[in-house]
Design a protein around this nucleic acid. Structure first.
Length: 681
DNA sequence: GTAGAGTTCTG
DNA sequence: AGAACTCTA
């Protein structure tokens, strides 16, 4: 309306027309150009996996048709640099404003900040919004104005915030389309020929797109939610929300989910329905975890690559690609683990409980580096989500103050009888064990020969023996920990002698991904010169030998969508991803301006650590800038504004230099264990 | 009312 | 694994 210049609404992971503040702002301002830019190279290692790309493709098509019915359409751009593409769109449309919604992964924080700077410098007015969280990360602080470092404290605070999360916005009634006639739309390619077959299966189980997300929400709230607290721990029940991929792509807003569910809760509370009330609390907690993952990512933008607590810095991870492969293929010899891994491969989906089982097995029993596992999740999960997965894996690895203790090994056999008491889940995904009685289903290695024979199982032949015994794993873990302690002590001694800097030694650099995975991720169909080769190796590498096509086909023909979905997962996305911000040269630049910005914006970052904390710092300002909802605060984060080493390593290794993070958790289990161990060692 | 066992929960 | 919590005799 004003001036005539139209505005660009930049869609990213907010692929919805309802409760989309950026879109609403665009509509309010006049004519709108809706844009989506596909620039996966910006994600570094974390090029989206096959199933995730499939989802994105569907979701964009859905969004486009919604926009069309409202009066405009989605401009898509294939790019290697989002910001230049934005500039192009600006030039070709004469837009004068840009609206977008916030993201909190490390790459986006940097990119969006830059986008704002660059576009503003071009005279474009840029406004960004919160569309992904109940509260912005910088709104949620403890009494002293510092960010929380444990989930429960964080979540409690969220639930007791003095103001409610914004109420969801209605979809626009219609959109006036800006003139995009001179703006070229690229045809985006999300799958190659070889992927189409596998992808075809997905549409039987899932319906991407914002209005489907809405339906999924309604279905869940009116159905399984009531018994969520009862059923949530069953691996095989269809009682989870199935919202995680929808949430990942922003097809439904958490605020809507929150309000919807809260209304139900009030209703149940009035009826004295205790179970229902409790279910809502539990479900909201998993929403809270998603919320927290963004919070952590914002406050610790390296958390997808490096542990928050550094007490495992010298842990000698097992770098064994054979183990890794056995895990991926579901051939570890532990039925629950194997069933999970095969389900993951076949469907891109896992119940949250099972994610915990397989990742915990990965870290504690196989003792493989958690980033490998996280990366595999990234490649295979339908709801792959960098922040959530980083949080999940760190939790499992015991590198969060409130994570699991590192030296606790979950026994898949016992866990199996808890979350799959009748072995149905195992039998579904491990056909070779289908005839094994429940008594032995989670520990076939103990079954009498006659039972195995009757079930047609020959251990070591058509089903593997345990790849590592649990007892052996315990021993090995203890040894590894004492080894770690020795290194730790040596390093400490070296520092005390002034021999070296505390950081920067080899223990700091992450273990590289195995060759095979590097290949998988580096060779993306779209940008690869030789797609055929790539595709093939990729497929072979991830193929699950014992199920192969037969299972696929069976599932495919008969049991349609419901069945695949039965494998349930709850709404918590657990996928990891990792971007190479750490490699970003900017990280080393001293950029006072950025620091300044960051501070005044009160975006409490990681570590102005101890020193800063005492100085009056930005608390006061922060609360003021905090609530400018519209147009306001972009999550400003700039790698240069943080002192990397301080951030975590220093943090917690217990060496004198330590600063922020762990110091606030002297009581943490991790630390205590660690000290205890240190004496042993 | 209490000791002790059993159960559940833990982000 | 361990704490907290519940049930039982």
């Amino acid at each position: 309306m004003s001036g005539g210049g139209c505005s660009i609404v930049w869609f990213r992971r907010d692929l919805r027309v309802e409760d989309n503040p950026a879109l609403a702002a665009g509509v309010r301002a006049g004519a709108v150009i809706a844009v989506f830019i596909w620039a996966p190279e910006e994600e570094g290692h974390y090029y989206p996996g096959r199933v995730s790309r499939w989802w994105l493709k569907q979701s964009l098509a859905h969004l486009d048709s919604s926009l069309k019915s409202l009066g405009t359409s989605l401009i898509t751009k294939r790019s290697t640099d989002s910001i230049s593409s934005l500039l192009e769109v600006v030039k070709s449309t004469g837009a004068t404003q840009l609206f977008f919604n916030h993201l909190y992964d490390p790459i986006s924080l940097v990119r969006d900040h830059r986008a704002k700077e660059v576009l503003t410098a071009q005279g474009i007015s840029v406004c960004s919004f919160n569309a992904d969280l109940l509260y912005e990360p910088w709104e949620v602080n403890d009494e002293e104005g510092r960010p929380f470092t444990t989930f429960s404290a964080f979540w409690e605070r969220c639930l007791r915030m003095p103001y409610d999360p914004e109420a969801p916005l209605l979809p626009p009634k219609r959109i006036i389309s800006g003139d995009a006639s001179r703006c070229v739309t690229d045809n985006l390619v999300f799958e190659d020929e070889s992927e189409k077959g596998s992808n075809a299966l997905l549409s039987r189980a899932w319906s991407p797109g914002w209005s489907n997300a809405d339906k999924a929400l309604a279905t869940f709230v009116n159905g399984p939610l009531l018994e969520y607290s009862q059923n949530r721990r069953k691996a095989d029940s269809a009682t989870t929300s199935f919202l995680s991929p929808h949430l990942h792509f922003g097809e439904v807003s958490v605020r809507k989910v929150f309000h919807f569910v809260r209304i139900k809760q009030v209703l149940w509370a009035n009826e004295g329905n205790k179970a229902g009330e409790e279910s809502v609390n539990l479900f909201l907690k998993s929403i809270g975890l998603r919320e927290y993952s963004r919070y952590m990512s914002f406050n610790h933008p390296y958390s997808h690559e490096r542990p928050l607590l550094g007490h495992l810095r010298y842990f000698p991870w097992v770098v064994d690609e054979g183990y890794f492969k056995a895990w991926r293929q579901g051939r570890t010899g532990y039925p629950l683990v194997d069933a999970g891994m095969r389900e993951l491969w076949a469907t891109g989906w896992l119940h949250d409980r099972i994610r915990v089982v397989v990742s915990s097995f990965f870290v504690k029993v196989l003792q493989l580096p958690w980033r490998w596992g996280m990366k595999y999740f990234w490649d295979t999960l339908l709801d792959a989500d960098l922040e959530s997965d980083a949080l999940g894996w760190q939790y499992i690895s015991g590198t969060l103050p409130d994570g699991r203790e590192f030296d606790r090994i979950d026994n898949p056999q016992f866990v199996g009888y808890k979350c799959d008491p009748h072995g149905e889940y195992v039998r579904r995904w491990l056909p070779e064990l289908a005839r094994l009685p429940t008594e032995w289903i989670h520990h076939p290695w103990n079954a009498p020969e006659s039972v195995l024979e009757a079930a047609g199982i020959e251990l070591g032949s058509n089903y593997p023996l345990p790849i590592v015994e649990i007892d052996a794993a315990k021993v090995r873990l203890e040894q590894a920990l004492s080894q770690m302690w020795q290194h730790e002590a040596a390093a400490r001694a070296a520092i005390e002698n002034g021999m070296e800097e505390g950081h920067g030694d080899s223990a700091d650099s992450p273990i590289e991904f195995p060759q095979a995975m590097q290949m998988e991720m580096d060779h993306e169909p779209v940008r690869n010169n030789n797609p055929v080769m790539v595709t093939v190796r990729r497929y072979e590498d991830q193929m699950v030998p014992s199920m192969t096509s037969s299972l696929f086909r069976a599932e495919d023909e008969e049991n349609s969508s419901v069945d695949i979905r039965n494998s349930v997962v709850d709404n918590r996305a657990e996928v990891p991803t990792d971007v190479n911000v750490a490699e970003d040269p900017r990280r080393n630049m001293v950029d006072q301006a950025a620091v300044q910005t960051a501070r005044t914006n009160a975006t409490p970052h990681f570590n102005f650590a101890v020193g800063r904390r005492n100085s009056e710092d930005s608390t006061a300002e922060s609360s003021s800038s905090t609530r400018e909802r519209d147009g306001g605060v972009v999550p400003v984060w700039s790698p240069s504004s943080t002192n990397y080493s301080d951030q975590y390593v220093g943090d917690d290794n217990g060496m004198g230099t330590s600063s922020s993070y762990l110091q606030r958790h002297p009581q943490s289990h991790q630390l205590m264990n660690w000290q205890r161990l240190s004496q042993t060692g």
